[in-house]
């Protein structure tokens, strides 16, 4: 019997190693052959010898452990490898795509947070019919599948003359006159996908805020403040909303993960050139190095968001001791 004693850092390192290893394993466990995609046009009529030449050239025929050590030592040097299907450094591909995903995710999350907090707080604060409507809307919106909403928006707003852009993040051939024109163009392209993603998030945030505000309202210090005759609006802002931000902060990590997954579908529907779409295409093309790099970025983003959530939680809530999220 082996006795394992693992410290906290031990668990963290184990987690990291396991994630990295799985990033290596999962793409290779998928049925399919990257060489076929590399051949592109020649694949249809390619004789087997051609495939073998290609596999040898990329080291795809090397023993798995050799590929694994190459991958790991590359990571230690900060080298993410070379994308088979795109013929670019993986780092360069991701650096190219990440800003768009961050823009889309950031705008969607901000919009969803502002709207969701407002909706949730208001419906909890006012109560009565507004509460029923507010909660009802939140629950309903929360239940709608994002890709479905995206398609409906596409069919309604994009497929007609003068409609909103149906694809991409900007008009690549536009030759903008000014920075303002460029910003406007990017904003127009952002409307539909951001709306879709924001709708996917807003219900959840509204419900969280609603529950938190409700709970805070029952706390003695709020009741006391109310008893002292503090104005409603100040009370809401000073005591209630501040506390309501807590679960929202705790949720940040989950939301980041959700966006990494959810934005694949949304980016696919709108051909938005972000990490989600790139990962989907890499899966289709069995582009191992790009998949490994992309997964790593997504995993790191989720870890970072979790850490940020913990920090934020600690700062917002004096009761929480030392980031126990």
């Amino acid at each position: 019997m082996i006795r394992l004693t693992l410290s906290r850092t031990g668990v963290f390192l184990l987690t990291l190693w396991a994630v990295l290893t799985l990033n290596f394993l999962i793409p290779r466990l998928m049925p399919g052959d990257p060489a076929l995609f590399l051949l592109g046009d020649a694949a249809e009529t390619a004789p087997p010898a051609m495939l073998e030449t290609l596999r040898a050239r990329y080291g795809l025929d090397a023993p798995a452990w050799e590929q694994y050590t190459a991958y790991m030592s590359g990571l230690l040097r900060g080298d993410l490898g070379y994308s088979l299907a795109r013929r670019q450094e993986v780092g360069a591909v991701l650096a190219d795509k990440l800003p768009w995903t961050l823009l889309l995710g950031g705008v969607s999350f901000t919009a969803a947070a502002v709207l969701g907090v407002a909706l949730g707080a208001l419906s909890a604060w006012r109560g009565g019919r507004l509460e029923i409507v507010g909660v009802g809307v939140s629950v309903a919106v929360n239940a709608m599948p994002a890709f479905w909403v995206g398609m409906l928006l596409l069919a309604t707003f994009a497929a007609r003359p003068g409609g909103l852009p149906a694809f991409g993040a900007y008009t690549p051939w536009a030759g903008y006159d000014s920075a303002a024109a460029e910003a406007l163009d990017v904003a127009r392209h952002l409307i539909l996908p951001a709306t879709t993603l924001a709708l996917a998030l807003v219900g959840d945030i509204a419900l969280l805020t609603h529950a938190a505000v409700r709970e805070t309202m029952g706390e003695t210090y709020v009741m006391a403040a109310r008893g002292k005759g503090l104005r409603e609006r100040d009370l809401l802002r000073r005591h209630v909303l501040r506390n309501a931000m807590l679960p929202l902060a705790a949720r940040l990590g989950v939301v980041a993960g959700l966006m990494a997954g959810g934005s694949t579908l949304v980016e696919t529907v709108f051909s938005y050139p972000g990490v989600g779409l790139t990962m989907y295409q890499a899966v289709i093309a069995r582009d191992f190095p790009l998949l490994q790099g992309g997964f790593l970025v997504v995993a790191l983003a989720v870890l970072a968001a979790n850490a940020a959530a913990g920090l934020l939680y600690g700062r917002l809530d004096p009761r929480a001791k030392g980031g126990a999220a």
Partner: peptide, 12 residues
């Protein structure tokens, strides 16, 4: 670990 791993390739 499972929470972090990307879902799409796992599904495939």
């Amino acid at each position: 670990i499972t929470l972090i791993i990307p879902k799409l390739p796992v599904a495939i």
